[in-house]
Amino acid sequence: MSTATAPAGTAGQAQATGVYVYGIVPEDVETDPEAHGVGGESATVTVVRHGRIAALVTELALDRPLGTPDDLLGHERLLDATAAVVPVLPARFGAVLADRQATVDELLAPHHDWFAAALRELEGKAEYVVRARYVEGAVLREVIESDPALERLRVRIRDKPEETTRSERIALGEAINTAIDARRQADGARVAQAIEPSTAGVVVREAAGELDAANVAVLAETSREPELEQVVRDLARDWAGRVEVRLLGPLAPYDFVTELQPGE
């Protein structure tokens, strides 16, 4: 395991620092001196260049815990803002290398060719995520109304005290959850199918909550964003009152990095 060493510019300073890596961008990217990511206002974002690629980085003191809400938001916001204008391969949160030289030697140089190829592939594209969530009252009503057995169970325990019907209540809730899960499979597939023609790739993500209706990531040309918005608007209109739909993006292509990686 390598240990952090102070970069040459800060010789004499006792504090250990590391280089926090946000992601990989083309070599010709320049950062705004006012750009911030993790590490607060004082930590600026710079690039470490090598060949045709560069790493977006922030020098970070290692004696602070990493992973506050501000750090998480800082990481993603910098990457998403970057992805809106240039291709970027996002790193998973929390990657810190020893120093700038290590960033070249251990990250950029060994993977230069596939990073460069992946960035070419991403030119003009970004990730978008469709997140749909059931309106709880509406989906519960839908589930109960479509299954007479559940309706009977509901009516049987409705007016009885909770203490004496706990196992029936759990059984009812579990059956409802299973029924929502079946709807989630169908609705997720519907989103993926509707949006696929406007994209260069689709990943159906796992549900992130029990009322998730769909969580679908797509890679798409940013020029086709209006088309994506139209598809999602049509879905939202069909599902009005039943499902809330959000469209996130442009985002860095978090869900497509592994696809871009050459087979190992």
Partner: peptide
């Protein structure tokens, strides 16, 4: 924050 947690903690380039 919820969207961020859903995304950056287990997706992206693993160093």
């Amino acid at each position: 924050l919820a969207d961020v947690i859903d995304t950056i903690l287990d997706k992206g380039l693993v160093i």
